[in-house]
Design a binder for these strands. Structure first.
Length: 484
DNA sequence: TGAAATGTTGGGGCG
DNA sequence: ACGCCCCAACATTTC
């Protein structure tokens, strides 16, 4: 059964050796494996990766190449369209087949690409591993896709345990003549002047080894307090921090799920699993409703009267809104390529409801700056906050940035870390410097409008404005329609 | 995985 | 002792 001609193994967002179905099959095929990553030109459907993710990709490809070296192989880098680059590589190596793991966000473009490659004479085999379950097989009792999370969760429970993850192969045979690889340095993935990624290096270790360290550390202890602690952005190590690794496929969700199996089914463990399943749910929605990525899932929001104030948007992106919890979050995002989940909800609510800026603007900003940016999760979660998504928070659920700060960062650890210019304020005023008496501000060395901005909007007024705008969507207006 | 507005209840001060 | 008011505490409704 073994065909000894080389197999092309096309790595994409599955930059791992562990639990990699395409890799296992390629090794079992018996012949050499040509491992390739293709840098495709950006098109409407492909990329570009955000700038933050280019930084991650650089280091992740380095890590993958090192891991392959330990198995007696290496990673070949090529650029060009997938069809051309892979066809050329197949010709150079005499490969007769192409193995690849399925990427659901590429469902619209992959079939044509793979069909073209098939026509060049390559046998094509696709494998799964991006998700716990195939999102297309999930069906409600009436045969449709799920639109609500809880039934989706129950359905997954009913499916039983996800498949066992498979360990990395002991070795991966390389071709006798290793084809040429482009130089990673030439891809210019790392930021130059200014190097805004300086702090990334201390915080993150891209690659499979880093992913497994994170997992081990989290399962070891923090998961025992996950349900409660995950809401407090000031706590270190309360969450798994696995999201960028998952986004690049450096670790499979099945591997993570499997790691939780040794634990007793506490509420903490269940809540962690539920977060993994939110990711599944987002992909389920994206696969069933591809428009989720760019259009309102609920098209009633198409008439929503969005505003766009350039200066206010800039204040949001740079963390200068005058609301400390919002600014802390946006600055964490810029400095760390990451933002705590609780604060993502607060900052998103602020952009959409206080500034009344279209969620797409926020989604695009997060896509460019988050190391864990993910096509399905990012769109689904932004629409969740906006109220336009499936099983979304109602639009009128508007976060009060002061109360959220007081509730979830009571000691102000998080704010003081990222907004140091107001660190001297007492806790009582830390979340609302604009209400502090002048003497208190002076004592803390804060001058509003100079050392720290005044609020870009008044939350109370902004809330009223958002709610009356929302009336456009519900069809209700201040003066009732006599035809009703 | 909200918050504000509005409604209800019950204890205590007080005439 | 009683009714009245105030208002905190809690519950419900509304956006």
């Amino acid at each position: 059964m073994s065909d000894r001609s080389p197999v092309l193994l096309w790595f994409r967002k599955d930059l791992r050796l562990d639990d990699n179905a395409a890799l296992m099959a390629a090794v079992q095929n018996g012949g050499p494996v040509v491992c390739v990553y293709v840098r495709e030109p950006q098109s409407e459907k492909v990329g570009p990766l955000g700038a933050a993710q280019e930084w991650w990709l650089h280091h992740s490809l380095t890590a993958l190449d090192a891991a392959l070296s330990e198995k007696g192989n290496r990673l070949i880098l090529r650029s060009g369209t997938a069809v051309e680059a892979l066809a050329i590589l197949a010709r150079e190596t005499g490969a007769r087949s192409l193995f690849v793991n399925r990427l659901y966000e590429r469902d619209e473009i992959d079939p044509a690409i793979l069909e073209q490659l098939h026509r060049t004479g390559l046998e094509i085999r696709r494998f799964k591993g991006q998700l716990l379950h195939d999102p297309k097989t999930m069906r409600t009792g009436t045969g449709g896709p799920y639109r609500v999370y809880t039934p989706f969760w129950r359905a997954l429970e009913k499916e039983g345990e996800p498949r066992e993850p498979v360990d990395a192969p002991a070795s991966i045979p390389a071709p006798a003549h290793v084809p040429a690889s482009e130089s990673l340095a030439d891809w210019d993935l790392l930021p130059q002047r200014p190097n805004w990624a300086v702090e990334f290096e201390n915080l993150w270790q891209p690659g499979e080894a880093g992913a497994h360290q994170r997992l081990k550390r989290f399962i070891d202890k923090p998961i025992e307090r996950y349900k409660r602690d995950r809401d407090f952005p000031g706590l270190e190590d309360a969450t798994s921090m696995l999201s960028p690794h998952l986004a690049f496929g450096e670790i499979s969700p099945a591997r993570i799920w499997h790691a939780t199996r040794g634990l007793t089914a506490t509420e903490d463990m269940i809540h962690f699993r539920k977060e993994l399943v939110w990711r599944e749910f987002s992909y389920h929605l994206l696969v069933e409703f591809p428009r989720l990525a760019s259009a309102n899932w609920n098209d009633r929001f198409d008439t929503f009267p969005w505003a766009f104030d350039k200066a206010q948007f800039a204040a949001w992106t740079t963390g200068q809104t005058g609301y400390p919890i919002v600014d802390a979050g946006m600055r964490q995002l810029w400095r760390h390529g990451y933002m705590h989940n609780r604060v993502r909800m607060i900052t998103a609510s602020f952009l959409i409801k206080d500034l009344m800026i279209n969620w797409r603007k926020g989604e695009a900003w997060f896509r460019d700056t988050l190391l864990d940016a993910d096509a399905a999760s990012n769109a689904a979660n932004w629409q969740w906050v906006a109220g336009s998504g499936a099983d979304a928070a109602p639009f009128f659920r508007i976060f009060n940035p002061i109360l959220q700060g007081e509730k979830f960062d009571p000691a102000g650890d998080y704010i003081r870390r990222f907004v140091p210019e107001i660190a001297g304020l007492p806790n009582r005023y830390l979340h609302k410097p604009f209400e502090a008496p002048l003497a208190v501000l002076k004592e803390a060395g804060v001058t509003l409008g100079t050392t720290y901005p005044k609020p870009v909007v008044d939350h109370g007024l902004a809330r009223d404005r958002a709610l009356s705008a929302y009336a456009h969507v519900t069809g209700r207006s201040a003066d009732p329609d006599p035809r009703d």
